[in-house]
Computed example of a mutant assay.
Amino acid sequence: MNAVILIPARLDSSRLPKKMLADLEGEPLIVRTWRQALQSKYADRVVVATDSREIAGALEAYGAEVVMTSPEARCGTERIAEAARSIDAEVFLNLQGDEPLIDPGNIDRCLEPFLGLDPPDCSTLVFPMLSDDCQQIEDPNVVKVVLNRHGNALYFSRSPVPFQREVYASTQFYRHIGLYAFSADVLQRYAALPPSMLELAESLEQLRLLENGFRIRCVTTTVDHPGVNTQEDLELVRRILRASLSR
């Protein structure tokens, strides 16, 4: 398997302006994410895809590989699909640029299904939740996923799925972790499709794949670290980094 990690990074962010360049203990946030990705055992290259010369300059100062992309991309997956057209690889992993604490082991877990004899169209990660964790299950900002018996995704939703008409202690809920690996062909086919009805309704781009008949393999992990979407997230990540660096 020839796998490449692609990190989409744009400068504009509605909730936290210029978050990719936010300082994290002396280094830009996007550099921290890139450094974590370099620790993957299965990936051959790590490339950042951006439409910002400011982001590109910050990364190149550290020796990172950068591909410039169009500002017209509608989502991160479309941005990496554009970058992937100039890169020869069998598998591309989409790692969000705002994940400076990403566990390299999770990157490799996401890539592992492509090492087998029956690789999926796409793979992603899920985190098991307890059925009595009502706050997360009801939270529309926490994306839930329902799996079939083969570990493939049936549906992703911001709603509490599966809905429990009768409460069973054995009901298993999963929280989605937004890390994706695609075969090269599926990535390009995905990007060529228009946004789907379910994708627009839930504001979840992975539903475009399911609605068009693609298979998403879900790999369970019990490791997760916070990403950065708000100022509060940024301060939390700073505290975690300070604590880890002081050990």
Results as ranks from 00 to 15, higher is better:
91 V>G: 10
216 I>Y: 03
201 A>I: 11
203 S>H: 06
226 P>L: 02
42 Y>M: 08
246 S>F: 12
35 R>T: 05
122 C>H: 15
75 C>W: 13
182 F>E: 00
191 A>W: 15
230 T>Y: 14
104 P>L: 01
188 Q>L: 09
153 A>P: 12
147 L>D: 10
211 E>T: 08
105 G>M: 07
32 R>T: 08
36 Q>T: 01
21 L>N: 03
111 L>I: 03
68 M>Y: 10
67 V>F: 14
34 W>T: 00
64 A>M: 05
149 R>D: 13
76 G>I: 04
112 E>G: 07
164 Q>S: 09
219 V>A: 00
166 E>N: 04
84 A>L: 06
43 A>Y: 12
147 L>W: 13
212 N>W: 09
112 E>Y: 14
89 A>F: 15
48 V>A: 07
222 T>C: 09
43 A>I: 01
244 S>G: 03
121 D>L: 09
200 L>C: 11
244 S>E: 06
237 V>L: 00
137 I>T: 00
171 T>R: 02
11 L>H: 05
124 T>D: 01
101 L>I: 06
52 S>I: 09
188 Q>Y: 10
193 L>A: 01
78 E>W: 12
221 T>K: 03
217 R>L: 08
147 L>T: 07
154 L>H: 08
161 V>M: 12
156 F>W: 12
109 R>W: 11
4 V>L: 07
170 S>W: 13
126 V>L: 06
220 T>K: 13
232 E>Y: 12
152 N>L: 02
229 N>Y: 11
5 I>H: 13
42 Y>L: 14
177 I>N: 11
182 F>Q: 01
178 G>N: 12
81 A>N: 03
109 R>K: 10
160 P>V: 02
25 E>L: 04
36 Q>D: 01
27 E>P: 11
125 L>C: 06
97 G>A: 01
90 E>N: 07
34 W>D: 00
101 L>R: 03
152 N>A: 05
167 V>W: 11
58 A>G: 12
122 C>A: 15
